[in-house]
């Protein structure tokens, strides 16, 4: 790699840092883990600079690296410390809302999303905030496009339900919870 090329690559990476951290937060549920992940991914990207096809999306490439480091190294390290095998679709990080919320101002919709399983958070972020197509998101997350579609749909419907719940629904739900007749 030429020196000028490498310098340009680095400065592009620097410009991406805030977005990499945001994607990291959606995956890990905390800013601290996100930073660890971003750092590891940048190191790897620089080592593998030659594998990146100029002209393709650098952000997607970095997201792919981050997702793989998260699944294969950082998260698996934490899972091993915990209870063994986990279905990523079921992996709800209860702390995400409070841990992220302690560091940054979360909007109403952020809080709802923070309560979703991590794979749903990641796909929402890629498609809705980063404007990836389903196909691009599938490549980043290394899953079939059908999986992207169903995870995204579950996430979007859950968010929608929560945001647009009418007062009557809330009352009915409360009645059900308290065992009253609706």
């Amino acid at each position: 790699m030429g020196e000028a090329e490498e310098a340009a690559f680095r400065s592009e990476l620097v410009a991406l840092l805030p977005r990499l951290r945001r994607f990291g937060c959606s995956l890990t549920g905390t800013l601290e883990l996100a930073d660890e992940l971003v750092q590891a991914a940048c190191e790897r990207a620089l080592q593998r600079f030659h594998q990146w096809a100029p002209g393709s999306r650098l952000d997607s490439w970095l997201y792919t690296i981050m997702h793989s480091i998260w699944c294969n190294e950082i998260r698996s390290r934490r899972v091993r410390q915990g209870s063994g095998r986990v279905d990523p679709d079921q992996l709800v990080d209860d702390g995400a809302e409070s841990q992220l919320g302690a560091r940054v101002m979360l909007s109403k919709i952020d809080r709802i999303v923070a309560r979703l399983p991590e794979e749903q958070r990641a796909v929402l972020l890629l498609v809705c905030a980063e404007g990836h197509s389903y196909k691009e998101a599938a490549a980043v997350l290394e899953v079939p496009i059908g999986t992207v579609m169903s995870r995204l749909a579950r996430a979007r419907l859950a968010v929608s339900e929560e945001l647009h719940r009418r007062p009557a629904d809330t009352a009915r739900r409360a009645a059900q919870v308290s065992g009253g007749s609706a």
């Binding site: 805030p18 800013l31 999303v113 929402l124 972020l125 905030a129 945001l163």
Partner: peptide, 29 residues
């Protein structure tokens, strides 16, 4: 109605975790 809600949510989700973008990258790094 569901479709309309989904469309509105899509707009709101564009700013998902936007506060993280405004966080300074840690100086310690």
């Amino acid at each position: 109605e569901r479709r309309r809600h989904l469309q509105e949510d899509a707009l709101a989700l564009r700013g998902l975790f936007g506060a993280v973008l405004r966080e300074p990258v840690p100086a310690a790094l």
